[in-house]
Design a protein around this nucleic acid. Structure first.
Lengths: 240, 240
DNA sequence: ACATCTAGTTTCAGTTATTGAAATCATCAT
DNA sequence: ATGATGATTTCAATAACTGAAACTAGATGT
């Protein structure tokens, strides 16, 4: 099950030694994966490493197939990383949460005609990991894989909320313009056994997500969040 | 563009130092990602590390959000890894190849009524990275993310083939029972600018993928491979 | 042709970071 | 209580790693 503790700081006494080399290679992997394609010098700068050190680590990543380097010298994700990435979408608690949430996301779109996202906590940020898109011509698109700060966002508030009894109605969080102007967010936390494990976020144009439609969307999103929360306790319970 | 060189061996003179620590943390990440959920002892055994060393690296991965550890002590992929994984599906040459190939995969299913896969080379293995599934009741399912040896498989042969002129008809590779009994594979290499960048694999029951249907499938898969190959050179060329 | 700049690559002396065997702790089963 | 197993901590020893500097390669400008 998903349990996100606040990451311990660098001086954690339970990790006496810093694993510096290991940390650096992960930084580089993350830098390349997040950037799409990047040069040695740029990757080294982003990871705050001397180029010779970065080159050594990038060499390892390339030799192992986690990255590839093209004729122009740019690094990108390689087949071994793609393989790992696929595995993470098929196995593990986030894959299960996503699979559980997907029908609910789609139901939200049916009920509200706005785009719905599943978000989880990643350190000091929220990251959107799944979506069902509205079918309207003007719709919210493209935030899967995107991270936003926990601070000052409705989705951040929801992810930082305390967990309630499974099945209980979640307290909703609202915001307009925190991330993009004129976008309204209606967010419901998803309760796990001991903490909030994710959040459902409904995103749409502020002029549409208001008044009666906002009220109806709030009802719908709370319902879906309760269903997912209950399904986390009884995987065989059918969705409502 | 995708360029998979044969990985250099451990004693590569251009990487004088082995980056042992970095390599080990990647091994552990891969082990956990591939297994779904795994204990410290099992992960250490699979990565061939003493438990104290493995624990230190797994601590780093957990602190950074790449892994999480549940109440039972099992490690699984964490939100930061999910975020990276999503990025790799949205950016980079493999994401582009997948996006280019997906309509073709679906067309293959329409034309042949069998399941179609896109495979790429990962070191000494082939990994299936995308699919379109047959809609028949008896169909091939579930190989996305799976790796098979290059040796002795039709998909391996195709991936090891020499690249021809883009637009030229690829030589097809056939096999039955190499990976699973009674499963026939028809595979076409996809040519990139200087080498094979992937392979289309049509998989179905051997008794169905035979004779006239096999012949028709062969025509279809070659057509799609040519289309993808050409599209890699002219991204704006419309699919046929 | 030559000079300059920038990205990339190699070298190796110095020492930091990393290691893992062993001790200890925690939990569970009998 | 005892024993087994997985997990965690400890710390002396040194292997592994580092990055500044030198070098290479390619592109650009004069």
């Amino acid at each position: 099950m998903i349990s996100t503790r606040v990451p311990s700081d660098k001086s954690s006494s339970s990790t006496l030694h810093s694993s510096r080399s290991a940390e650096r290679v992960l930084n580089l992997l993350d830098t390349v994966a997040s950037s799409g394609a990047i040069s040695l010098t740029a990757a080294a700068a982003q990871a705050d490493l001397p180029t010779s050190t970065a080159l050594r680590h990038l060499r390892l990543l390339t030799n192992r197939g986690y990255l590839i380097r093209d004729d122009q010298g740019l690094y990108s994700v390689g087949p071994a990383f793609v393989r790992m990435a696929l595995a993470s979408h098929q196995r593990g608690p986030y894959a299960r949460l996503t699979a559980l949430a997907q029908p609910g996301l789609e139901r939200l779109v049916e009920d509200t005609e706005e785009s719905a996202y599943l978000a989880v906590r990643d350190g000091t940020e929220a990251v959107y990991i799944a979506t069902a898109e509205s079918r309207r011509a003007i719709r919210h698109v493209g935030w899967v894989g995107r991270s936003v700060p926990l601070d000052g966002t409705a989705v951040g508030e929801a992810l930082l909320a305390s967990a309630e009894t499974p099945g209980s109605r979640p307290e909703l969080h609202f915001n307009t313009g925190a991330i993009e102007p004129d976008v309204t967010a209606v967010v419901a936390p998803i309760f796990g056994p001991s903490q909030v494990v994710g959040a459902l976020s409904l995103l749409g144009p502020a002029d549409r997500l208001a008044n009666e439609r906002l009220h109806r969307a709030s009802e719908a999103i709370a319902d879906v969040a309760v269903d997912i929360s209950l399904a986390l306790f009884s995987p065989d319970r059918p969705s409502r």
